[in-house]
């Protein structure tokens, strides 16, 4: 098996473990390259089926290309999407221009997810985060518990060895399960290239700029790039010294915003 085969098998193993343990499970799909790769791997793990619901947390500030891609791919791959929105907060005018960004992310993403979990009673969530994305994510476990306030007790994480993952305790609200934790950004793109996985066209350069990481239109900046094909993106990543999330506002505000967001239950 080559490098990508090994990564793929490890992810499929984790996805199958998660599904074996929890039938009340859902996948979080942000519609970016990582969680789309996650959806692809879920289909591979279950022979073309997606045997549980898929949640899209919609802040209503996403790029229009993201909404179009959501509708296209869910139809093409035949899976059910639950759109989770914090309508109450949106009605109160919460948005990227209404105050601090930490509050906006918390209300429109974390709170929206909490509401969805409350409503559907999910016990486990599959997420496409990777260790190399951000230092704080490097400290995650594959199976990572959250309490009822959604807090991540990163100082007291259970040991995890030899693919023996923790199971849910009564006091755990739900488990976050991270099948792509061991992949890098370059791995993802090499895999997207090899497997011909469809991705949102925002990743491809237009007029000398492209998005390396996508989320809300208001809080994402494109990076300088001429990579307008997947092959060129793979080439670009082999040499770049700019970090993936450099265009993401929530990573920059201060040294610890990402840590605070994650401790509060952010994805």
């Amino acid at each position: 098996m080559d490098h990508l085969d090994i990564l793929e098998s490890q992810s499929i193993y984790i996805i199958r473990e998660a599904y074996k343990q929890y039938k009340d499970i859902a996948a979080l799909w942000s519609i970016g390259k990582d969680s789309t790769t996650l959806m692809y791997l879920i289909r591979k793990a279950f022979y073309g089926k997606v045997p549980f619901p898929v949640i899209h947390i919609d802040t209503s500030y996403k790029f229009k290309e993201i909404y179009e891609f959501r509708d296209y791919l869910s139809k093409e791959w035949n899976f059910k999407v639950i759109v989770a929105k914090n309508q109450e907060a949106l009605d109160c005018g919460v948005g990227p221009n209404s105050g601090d960004k930490l509050n906006c992310c918390t209300k429109l993403k974390t709170e929206a997810l909490k509401q969805a979990i409350d409503k559907y009673k999910f016990k486990a969530l599959l997420l496409g985060i990777r260790r190399d994305e951000h230092g704080i994510r490097a400290k995650e476990r594959v199976f990572s518990p959250r309490n009822r306030y959604f807090e991540w007790d990163y100082k007291n994480q259970p040991p995890e060895l030899w693919d023996q993952f923790k199971t849910k305790k009564d006091e755990d609200e739900h488990l976050r399960i991270h099948p792509l934790l061991h992949w890098t950004e370059l791995d993802i793109w090499s895999y997207v290239q090899r497997e011909k996985i469809p991705v949102v066209n925002l990743y491809f350069a237009k007029n000398g700029k492209r998005y390396r990481s996508i989320g809300c239109e208001t809080c994402c900046e494109p990076v300088d790039s001429n990579a307008d094909t997947i092959d060129k993106i793979v080439q670009e990543l082999k040499t770049t010294k700019v970090s993936e999330r450099s265009g993401r506002a929530q990573d920059k505000e201060s040294a610890y915003v990402m840590q605070k967001l994650r401790a509060l239950g952010y994805m």
């Binding site: 260790r131 190399d132 951000h134 230092g135 704080i136 490097a138 400290k139 990163y154 100082k155 994480q157 890098t184 040294a255 610890y256 840590q259």
Partner: peptide, 18 residues
């Protein structure tokens, strides 16, 4: 990367980097 780790100057959690 954790606030406590920087303040106390010790690593608490396992980190991976490339």
């Amino acid at each position: 990367h954790l606030e406590e780790e920087r303040e106390q100057g010790i690593t608490i959690e396992t980190t991976q980097t490339f």
